[in-house]
Design a protein around this nucleic acid. Structure first.
Lengths: 221, 221
DNA sequence: TAAAAAAGTTAGGTTTGTCTAAAAATTATT
DNA sequence: AATAATTTTTAGACAAACCTAACTTTTTTA
């Protein structure tokens, strides 16, 4: 009943999920870049996943996940984010260190384990990066997130998540002492490069690039 | 510096370790049976591990782990037992359920993770089956264990570990309500089959086979 | 100690997941 | 619309871990 997927298959499925969130449909090249593999490998694997009815796939046309594919993806993401929460909350890892380890832990296969972990952690709804943790049915809490880049000027908000796993970005945020819960507001929007100037209490203005402002999610307060 | 081993390699190394504890040297067939693979697969892998200087190996002669092999084995065992402890102690798994999941978790590769887990669990020295957990240097606490089969008559002792992972055995012990910490003594030794009759307070005598008595470790009190 | 049995190894194949290089299809450009 | 550029797929290989079947070595036993 419960079909199993290899670690590779799970990683492909997860990547397709993330990419189709951003782009709607996923191309061979985009996926190859995301997974750091040769495009030929993508074609091979995607054919296999198509045969297993995990992706919709027409040669040369790109792919999207089937219902079942989404279910599988959300389950892997659930595991990844629960483990991240565990690592930070229980084992006191710091924010930037957890991703790599969670990449391994997300492939541990035991429904009982993950449900017990969920209960032990008291059913957290967001991971340490602020991303929502799907529940055991694949439901994800909405959360009124908003990209920092979209926050109106002078509207106070707190950082609720970081949408990227880039170590460099996480490092940069750490240096700025910006973390989950940090309160800030936008003072000015620079039209020529779409960067924003943000103000955090007791600190000088910081200029933040469009890319960075896109990766930081905030919630107005 | 820190060479990595595949999950398969780790499993072979771990099995060689366990078998050589019992038998001194390990044969192809014994290992094949233990790992549920064809003997030919053993030969293949053992040649590879020999090339990596993990086992001593002379064709047709059996094998043993090198110093480095023992180090690797103890590290895998450390991870396995720490995770078992975590599953029972933190996540409230029951005793018989943990082995399978720990078989997966033992291959997660992160020194930091395992050290932090160790600290979180407060440096336990024995796993839920009573087996010693190697520390980060591979040192294992002695523990004055004794096989139930070797316990003198009328000497009270408590169950401290179970030396087998057989689900059937664990199930049987559960049915008899024998668990870590259960106090008992041997009332009689039956010479003809080497079984023993054990007495637990408030319960009728139980006859226990030699095999079972060999698998249960106790500590005199 | 020679024949039979058992244990171990080699030879050759399969599957999974990867790769490079070449070919085909699609998209963009002039 | 024809050509160039890009994207995607196919073809053919390879390494890791397996397997079965056949062949050696070692051990047992009659």
């Amino acid at each position: 009943m419960e079909p199993n997927f290899s670690i590779s298959e799970e990683n492909y499925i997860k990547s397709v999920y993330h990419l189709q969130q951003q782009e709607g449909t996923v191309s061979t090249n985009a996926l190859a870049q995301h997974l750091k593999t040769a495009p030929a490998s993508i074609t091979d694997m995607l054919k296999k996943l198509h045969a297993k009815r995990i992706v919709h796939y027409k040669p040369y046309k790109g792919f999207t996940l089937s219902k079942e594919g989404i279910r599988v993806a959300l389950n892997v993401i659930r595991k990844h984010r629960l483990w991240e929460f565990f690592l930070v909350d229980t084992l006191r890892f710091s924010w930037e260190e957890v991703h790599e380890v969670a990449e391994q832990l997300e492939h541990i296969n035991s429904i009982k384990l993950i449900d017990k972990l969920d209960a032990f952690l008291n059913y957290p709804r967001f991971d340490p990066h602020g991303d929502p943790i799907p529940d055991s049915n694949g439901k994800i809490s909405a959360g009124n997130h908003l990209k920092l880049s979209k926050l109106p000027v002078n509207k106070p908000a707190v950082v609720i998540s970081v949408a990227s796993q880039s170590a460099e970005l996480l490092e940069f945020l750490k240096n700025c002492n910006i973390k989950i819960g940090t309160r800030m507001e936008i003072k000015k929007r620079l039209g020529f490069d779409n960067s924003v100037e943000i103000k955090i209490k007791n600190r000088p203005l910081i200029n933040v690039s469009e890319q960075l402002a896109n990766a930081v999610n905030v919630k107005p307060v």
